[in-house]
Amino acid sequence: MTPAAPVLTARALLLDMDGTLVNSDAAVERSWGVWADENGFTLDEVMKVSHGRQAHATMAVLLPDRPAERNLADNRAMLARETADTDGVVPVPGAPAFLAALAGLPHALVTSADAALAGARMAAADLPVPAVRVTAEDVTASKPDPEGFLLGAATLGIAPADCVVFEDSEAGILAARAAGMRVVGVGPRAADLGPDAHVEDLTRLRVTAAPSGGIALYLTEPAPVPTA
Results as ranks from 00 to 15, higher is better:
residue 186 V to F: 09
residue 183 V to A: 07
residue 106 P to V: 05
residue 175 A to G: 15
residue 158 I to H: 02
residue 193 L to S: 07
residue 103 A to M: 03
residue 198 H to N: 09
residue 170 E to P: 03
residue 160 P to M: 09
residue 178 A to F: 00
residue 124 A to D: 13
residue 163 C to W: 03
residue 103 A to F: 00
residue 127 L to R: 11
residue 141 A to R: 15
residue 140 T to F: 01
residue 177 R to T: 15
residue 120 A to W: 11
residue 116 A to R: 09
residue 133 R to M: 06
residue 148 G to Q: 02
residue 113 A to W: 00
residue 109 L to N: 01
residue 146 P to G: 07
residue 127 L to E: 06
residue 113 A to K: 08
residue 187 G to R: 02
residue 100 A to T: 09
residue 174 L to W: 00
residue 119 G to C: 01
residue 129 V to K: 14
residue 127 L to H: 07
residue 184 V to W: 06
residue 129 V to D: 05
residue 164 V to N: 08
residue 114 D to I: 02
residue 131 A to D: 15
residue 134 V to D: 08
residue 124 A to M: 03
residue 182 R to A: 12
residue 131 A to K: 12
residue 119 G to N: 14
residue 198 H to Y: 01
residue 101 A to M: 04
residue 106 P to H: 05
residue 118 A to Q: 14
residue 173 I to Q: 14
residue 133 R to E: 11
residue 185 G to D: 04
residue 121 R to A: 13
residue 184 V to L: 15
residue 187 G to N: 05
residue 176 A to Y: 06
residue 143 K to R: 12
residue 136 A to V: 04
residue 137 E to H: 12
residue 125 A to Q: 08
residue 130 P to Y: 04
residue 135 T to K: 03
residue 115 A to C: 02
residue 199 V to K: 03
residue 195 P to R: 06
residue 105 L to P: 04
residue 171 A to Q: 13
residue 105 L to G: 08
residue 112 S to R: 09
residue 138 D to W: 07
residue 162 D to N: 11
residue 144 P to A: 09
residue 159 A to D: 15
residue 191 A to K: 15
residue 195 P to L: 01
residue 200 E to D: 14
residue 180 G to R: 06
residue 126 D to I: 01
residue 126 D to H: 14
residue 108 A to L: 10
residue 125 A to I: 03
residue 120 A to H: 11
residue 129 V to E: 11
residue 182 R to W: 08
residue 163 C to I: 03
residue 155 T to G: 01
residue 106 P to D: 06
residue 139 V to N: 00
residue 194 G to L: 01
residue 134 V to F: 12
residue 200 E to N: 05
residue 168 D to K: 10
residue 115 A to I: 07
residue 105 L to N: 05
residue 117 L to I: 01
residue 150 L to D: 09
residue 106 P to Y: 02
residue 174 L to I: 14
residue 130 P to E: 07
residue 121 R to C: 13
residue 147 E to W: 09
residue 173 I to N: 06
